[in-house]
């Protein structure tokens, strides 16, 4: 139902490109593959450090 005068949230927040990407990711294996790689890279770069570290203690 279209309410007269109502604002389309997707337009205001400019979400359409994200919807389009999500839509094509679900239908295109190539886009989905690229999205998965991007997510993995994001997790590696911005994720917490969990590797074995030497904790240097001076005094």
């Amino acid at each position: 139902m279209v309410v007269p005068g109502a604002v389309d949230v997707r337009t205001v927040l400019r979400l359409d490109p994200i919807y389009r990407l999500a839509g094509s990711a679900l239908t295109s294996p190539y886009v989905l593959g690229a999205v998965l790689v991007a997510l993995a890279l994001g997790a590696i770069v911005f994720g917490p450090s969990s590797e074995s570290r030497f904790i240097y203690t001076d005094f």
Partner: peptide, 13 residues
């Protein structure tokens, strides 16, 4: 679809 997705991810990686 899964194979193409995995192949794309592998090539990119």
């Amino acid at each position: 679809f899964a194979l193409r997705t995995a192949a794309t991810a592998l090539v990119l990686l």
